[in-house]
Nucleic acid binder design. Structure first.
Length: 226
DNA sequence: GCCCAGGTGGGTA
DNA sequence: TACCCACATGGG
């Protein structure tokens, strides 16, 4: 990764902090809860994924109950989040695998693993791809992983931090190299904020994009103050 | 009614 | 490997 790209990433990170501030850490979930919440958030608006998660926990207060329930009932509980026929069996498969292979409905053992080992394990679970694995690693286990959702992917492409043809999957490792791990959380959250607020999908291009300096919202091209 | 929110996995060339 | 598509719902 070129040094100048790293410098640019740090500069964008600082500008995002100026504009959006330091994001607050929400209440940390245990890794299994974080995993289920993240699965429910796949291809789903935040509001509906949280509603689905709350509905699931209310109807089945323990993971044992989720596992024991007929899959149709689990799907019904999370229906509001959409894609319930896909997500319900995946969630139950994960719980079944944990029960059979680890003897407990918990992912707490991931805390003892290296980030690479934990990531590999998460990716082996049905319905868990690079984004979902990275969310569990970063938000719950506080391990260095950089989740790339559709906003992060779009904004970092428009900013030129990754190539125009770089896939979201590839972007996970590339972006993780660009900023130090202690900045992952704030950089990730602020890129999403920016993606929603300004550099949204409907916009033909990002309004802060340095490729469009005539509408440079973050003043990315201004002289460095130092 | 239409568009937007928004990842994973399976199939095909 | 690289693409294409199914999967479903809610809000503006």
């Amino acid at each position: 990764m070129p040094v100048e790209t790293k410098a640019k990433a740090e500069r964008i990170h600082a500008l995002l902090l100026e504009r959006y501030g330091q994001p607050q850490l929400r209440e940390r979930l245990d890794p299994l809860s974080e995993l289920v919440l993240t699965i429910l958030s796949q291809n789903t608006a935040d509001r509906n994924s949280h509603r689905a998660y709350e509905a699931l926990r209310e109807r089945f207060p323990t993971w044992e109950e989720v596992l024991a329930a007929p899959v149709e009932e689990v799907a019904e509980a999370i229906r509001i989040g959409g894609l319930a026929q896909v997500k319900a069996p995946r969630i139950q498969s994960i719980l079944r695998q944990l029960a059979q292979e680890h003897g407990a409905l918990s992912l707490d053992f991931l805390a003892e693993m290296s980030v690479e080992e934990a990531r590999r394990f998460l990716l082996s679970l049905p319905g868990v791809g690079p984004k979902t694995a990275a969310c569990v690693l970063l938000f719950s286990l506080q391990k260095p992983a950089f989740p790339v959702d559709t906003h992060v992917h779009r904004v970092t492409r428009r900013l030129g931090l990754i190539g125009p043809k770089t896939s979201a999957e590839e972007a996970h490792d590339l972006l993780a190299e660009l900023v130090p791990p202690e900045h992952y959380f704030a950089f990730h959250v602020n890129l999403i904020r920016h993606g929603r607020a300004i550099c949204h999908a409907a916009a033909p291009r990002c309004e802060i994009c340095p490729l469009a300096p005539e509408c440079d919202h973050l003043n990315l091209n201004r002289q460095a103050s130092s």
